[in-house]
Every structure is written in structure tokens, then in C-alpha cells.
Amino acid sequence: MEVRTIKVFTTVDNINLHTQVVDMSMTYGQQFGPTYLDGADVTKIKPHNSHEGKTFYVLPNDDTLRVEAFEYYHTTDPSFLGRYMSALNHTKKWKYPQVNGLTSIKWADNNCYLATALLTLQQIELKFNPPALQDAYYRARAGEAANFCALILAYCNKTVGELGDVRETMSYLFQHANLDSCKRVLNVVCKTCGQQQTTLKGVEAVMYMGTLSYEQFKKGVQIPCTCGKQATKYLVQQESPFVMMSAPPAQYELKHGTFTCASEYTGNYQCGHYKHITSKETLYCIDGALLTKSSEYKGPITDVFYKENSYTTTIK
């Protein structure tokens, strides 16, 4: 009895394709271990004539594949690729409408935090270190965002349907971005203890939790000093293409032309909904596939993004 075979390709990165001759009487799992086709788990399936010449994702289970996976995804987590594939199996079914010149995501599976993050990423200057993220990001900007969303979920250790947080998501993504040249110098002034300067680099240099107003941050924000008295913390120097200011959701007025974009969060910790506000020729609110415009805006804002380049204080 002759062994019926077909020729397929296996890959971990969709760049390096490895030619395989597979036995049609055995499952993919018996031949390769966990195997995925377009995100779908085909591990328990036997090869079919229609699979001839198709590319299958496999887990990096030998040295060659491990090197290829690390170079593309910059992670050695053995569960990463499987999590990416199972997320992709959902995100490829989502709709990605162009809204006001940006790629958004039609609401499904509690994905409003991903839509808000995706919209924000198209408006701030950011370059990702893992080629996987950078490639998928370019495709997302062009309207094909399924891979990018699935990668975000995998890097953030999230599953489809789980509630997510924009600030946490951005923080994970910033860790995989090139923020080497970003720098922030802060000064804390206390009447009792004097003053202390701190220099922050990388992710810490672009994120701040405690106030939404970048102007206020430049002037000074009140913080408790270690001595128990009130101290003032203010920005001395900022070198970065953008800054992200966050605070627990509270009524906040966004003035046209003073910011790049913002995240609105309605609801409580267990259950809520994100919308995205962007400042173009007027203010726009993007909620999944829905767009509304207004000249002014007041609502429960939790993150505001500002364009920056270089700032030095005039406070002496």
C-alpha cells in the first residue's frame, strides 16, 4: 500500500517557510505537534488534498525554529505562539472599519479597549522592536488589523473576551517599542525636605499616572512627601515624541487643539466601556464603527496623549 502524501510549508514567522512532505494517514499533531492554519487549530486533523502548498504555523520545537521565533517575536515564552494563534482565530472574524481616516474595530468580545489602543497607536510616533509587531502594525494602518490585535493580546497575556485596560495595554506595548531616546527629568520640591531631581528613561519617561493635564504637570502637581507634608512635583525636561497622561476616570474637559487623542471610560472596574476622542479640525468621538463630532467635550476621561518633541522648564 502506497503512502499518500502532500507537500506543505511549516513556519513560526510566515517569513521562513520549511518544506514538509506530510503523510495523509496521520494527523498534523502526530507529525508536527500543535499546528495552526489561519489561526485555526488543526492539530487533530489529517492532511487533505486542499492543504497542498498551504502554510501551517507550528510551535518552535527545534533550534532553527526557536531562533526564527525569537528573532521575529522577541520572546522565548513557549506558550506565546499558541496564544497568538488562538487569538487570531477570533480577531480574523472582527470587522476593521476605516473611521475618520483611522483603522478602528467594530465592537465584539469586549474589544473596546483594543480599538482605543489601536486608534491611539496610529496617532503617536512609535516604532516597535519585534519585527512581528512592526509588520502587523503597518498592515493594521492599511486596514488589516487582525494579526496586530492578536499579537497585542498575546504580548499582554490576554484572551479574547476578557476586559482590558488601555493604560495597561499601552504599557505592555511600550515595553516592546523603541523608547531608548526618551528621557524625563522631574523635580520634587518640599518646604521641609528641599528639592530632589529624578531622571527617568524609556517607558517611565512617557507615562504618568495622577493627572490628565500635561500643562498642569509642567506647572506642578501636589504629591505627598515622605515627611508627610505636601510637596510639588513638576516637569523639568521632556525628550520624547509623545507623552501619555493618565488618571482614574473623572469628568474632564478636553479643549480642541490642546491634545492629540484621549480615552474615555464609562462604567466601573468590573464592567465598563471605552471610547476614543481625537482632536482634528474639530473633536471626534470614535466608538467602534461609530463616529460623532463636537466642538467641545466633557466626560469621564482616563488617558490623554500629547505630541511632544523637546521641553525644558522655565521655572527657576
Rank of each mutant, 00 (worst) to 15 (best):
V3G: 12
T5H: 11
K7R: 12
T10R: 10
D13K: 05
N16T: 09
T19H: 13
V22F: 06
T35M: 13
V42A: 10
V42H: 12
H51G: 05
F56H: 04
Y57R: 05
L59I: 11
P60E: 07
T64F: 09
F70P: 04
Y73S: 04
H74K: 08
T75N: 12
P78H: 10
P78R: 14
S79G: 14
G82C: 14
L88W: 10
L88S: 04
N89Q: 10
K93M: 09
K95Q: 15
Y96L: 04
P97L: 13
N100P: 04
N100I: 06
N100C: 13
T103Q: 04
S104V: 05
I105Y: 03
N110K: 04
Y113R: 07
L114F: 05
A117D: 02
L119D: 05
L121T: 11
Q122E: 04
E125Q: 10
K127E: 12
N129H: 13
A132D: 03
A136R: 02
R139V: 07
R139S: 13
R141Q: 09
A146I: 03
N147Q: 14
L153C: 06
A154D: 02
Y155W: 05
K158G: 02
G164N: 05
D165L: 03
E168P: 03
S171P: 04
Y172V: 09
Y172T: 12
Y172F: 10
F174A: 04
Q175H: 12
N178E: 13
L186H: 08
N187T: 10
V188N: 05
V189S: 11
Q196T: 13
Q197E: 12
T198N: 10
K201Q: 11
G202P: 01
E204F: 06
Y208K: 00
T211P: 02
E215T: 08
E215Y: 03
Q216S: 10
K219G: 08
Q230E: 11
Q230L: 14
M244L: 05
A247R: 03
P248C: 09
P248K: 10
P249E: 00
A250Q: 15
E253W: 07
E253N: 10
G257D: 12
F259V: 02
T260V: 15
S263A: 13
H273R: 00
H276C: 10
I277H: 01
S279C: 09
Y284G: 06
Y284N: 08
L290A: 14
E296S: 13
G299E: 02
I301V: 10
Y311P: 12
Y311S: 08
T314H: 15
